[in-house]
Amino acid sequence: DENEERIRAFALYKGIDPEKARELWERGEINKDDEEKAWREYK
Rank of each mutant, 00 (worst) to 15 (best):
D1F: 11
D1P: 11
E2F: 13
E2S: 12
E2P: 13
E2Y: 14
E2A: 12
E2W: 13
N3E: 14
N3I: 15
N3D: 13
N3Q: 14
N3H: 13
E4H: 07
E4G: 07
E4P: 02
E4V: 07
E5M: 10
E5W: 09
E5A: 11
E5I: 07
E5S: 05
E5R: 07
R6Q: 02
R6D: 01
R6F: 14
R6P: 00
I7N: 01
I7K: 01
I7H: 01
I7M: 05
I7W: 13
R8P: 01
R8H: 10
R8K: 14
R8V: 09
R8N: 09
R8M: 14
A9F: 07
A9S: 04
A9G: 01
A9T: 01
F10T: 06
F10I: 15
F10L: 15
F10V: 15
A11I: 02
A11M: 02
L12M: 14
L12R: 11
L12I: 13
L12S: 10
L12A: 13
Y13Q: 04
Y13M: 07
Y13L: 06
Y13S: 03
Y13T: 02
K14V: 13
K14P: 00
K14Q: 08
K14R: 06
K14Y: 15
K14F: 15
G15K: 10
G15P: 00
G15V: 01
G15L: 03
G15T: 01
G15M: 06
G15I: 01
I16K: 00
I16Q: 00
I16P: 00
D17Q: 07
D17E: 11
D17K: 09
D17F: 03
P18S: 07
P18K: 10
P18E: 14
E19R: 09
E19H: 08
E19C: 15
E19F: 07
E19L: 11
E19Y: 07
K20L: 14
K20I: 13
K20G: 04
K20Q: 14
K20C: 15
K20D: 10
K20R: 12
K20M: 13
K20H: 12
A21N: 00
A21L: 02
A21H: 00
A21W: 01
R22A: 05
R22H: 05
R22W: 07
R22N: 01
R22S: 02
R22K: 11
R22Y: 06
R22L: 07
R22T: 02
R22P: 00
E23V: 10
E23N: 06
E23I: 13
L24P: 00
L24Y: 05
L24S: 02
L24R: 02
L24I: 07
W25G: 00
W25Q: 03
W25T: 00
W25P: 00
W25D: 00
W25N: 01
E26T: 07
E26I: 12
E26W: 09
E26A: 11
E26R: 09
R27A: 13
R27E: 04
R27T: 09
R27I: 06
G28Y: 02
G28I: 02
G28C: 11
G28S: 04
E29T: 04
E29G: 07
E29A: 09
E29L: 14
E29P: 01
E29S: 06
I30K: 01
I30V: 12
I30E: 01
I30P: 01
I30S: 01
I30T: 03
I30W: 10
N31Y: 05
N31P: 12
N31C: 14
N31R: 07
N31A: 09
N31I: 05
N31Q: 09
N31G: 08
K32S: 09
K32P: 14
K32D: 07
D33F: 10
D33A: 11
D33V: 09
D33T: 08
D33W: 10
D34V: 05
D34L: 05
E35N: 08
E35G: 06
E35D: 09
E35H: 05
E36Q: 05
E36A: 08
E36F: 06
K37L: 12
K37A: 14
K37Y: 06
K37V: 11
A38W: 10
A38Y: 07
A38G: 05
W39I: 05
W39L: 07
W39G: 02
W39V: 04
R40A: 14
R40L: 14
E41V: 08
E41F: 11
Y42N: 03
Y42R: 03
Y42W: 12
Y42K: 04
K43L: 14
K43F: 11
K43M: 13
K43I: 14
K43D: 07
